[in-house]
């Protein structure tokens, strides 16, 4: 089997816009899942509402496309009822951290044995580009026409603080590293959280001087700071540029977990 065999060919091409990175993240996830020898019949994908949350609809496994923000409670239910199943959640920054924020911290606290992949395009993509809790300072959205003046969430720090066993961040440009991080997350008992900074050319790039996909990718690449480099800067007492975000494995530990296969 290969990653291609997990796609519902009859549903492709998908509805994502040209250049949207969500499709890349599905590729990386399916490559990771396939490389572990997981079976279609033992795997469940769960999602909420949003462009990102449409991902399970293109995959052959059973799936739950739930209500906005509630993917994690549904996934928790599936995992508690069927511990032998592999449960993977696709969610968006709005789905996970705005309407679903409370579920997020409690799923991390419970350290339920699922893998959560957040496609963070830093905007509400599906509904036309409203600001989300992850919209960076200064960014233009339909609800922040003069620029966002709130401080965004750091989803990875939130997940680590709330108790998740494995936390990593990459971008949809870093396909190799992302696939490996997802693979690590899938194998780690407890909640694994993988945040992927992803381009939404339609509702983010267009309003933020990143009109074409290439400039969005270049900007993501240029603003990604490797964790190792960040740690080195810290050790040397040098300042961390505040427009950069850290990528790499941020937490990897073994807190007691819930719903682990016996």
């Amino acid at each position: 089997m290969s990653a291609e065999d997990w796609f519902r060919e009859d549903r492709l091409p998908h509805i994502f816009c040209a250049g949207c990175g969500n499709g890349t993240i599905i590729n990386c996830t399916l490559e990771a899942v396939d490389s572990l020898g997981w079976k279609i019949d033992d795997t469940v994908f769960v999602s909420g509402i949003g462009c990102s949350s449409r991902a399970p609809g293109y995959i052959k496994t059973d799936s739950l496309h739930t209500t906005h923000g509630r993917a994690l409670p549904f996934a928790t239910g599936v995992k508690m009822a069927k511990k032998d199943f592999n449960v993977v959640v696709f969610t968006g920054d709005g789905d996970l951290s705005a309407i679903g924020g409370n579920h997020f911290i409690h799923a991390c606290r419970r350290n339920i044995d699922i893998t959560v992949i957040c496609m963070n395009n830093q905007i509400y993509g599906m509904t036309g580009g409203q600001g989300s809790p992850c919209t960076p300072k200064g960014a233009i959205s339909t609800t922040t026409p003069y620029g966002m003046d709130e401080t965004p969430f750091d989803l990875c720090e939130l997940a680590s603080a709330a108790g998740a066993n494995y936390v990593a961040r990459w971008t949809s440009y870093h396909v190799r590293e992302l696939t490996q991080a997802i693979k690590n997350g899938l194998q780690r008992p407890g909640l694994s959280f993988i945040e992927v900074i992803v381009q939404c050319p339609t509702n983010y790039g267009r309003r933020n001087k990143l009109r074409d996909v290439q400039s969005m990718i270049t900007s993501m690449k240029d603003h990604a700071l490797l964790k190792e480099k960040r740690d080195r800067l810290l050790a040397e007492g040098k300042p961390i540029p505040d427009d950069m975000f850290v990528v790499g494995t941020l937490t990897d530990r073994n807190r007691p977990a819930l719903g682990v296969k016996e």
């Binding site: 091409p13 499709g23 396909v175």
Partner: peptide, 17 residues
């Protein structure tokens, strides 16, 4: 096995094979 393959993995539209 597949070698390199970055174009296939990054292609958001599953168009490369």
């Amino acid at each position: 096995r597949r070698l390199c393959g970055v174009c296939q993995t990054i292609c958001p539209d599953q168009a490369i094979r």
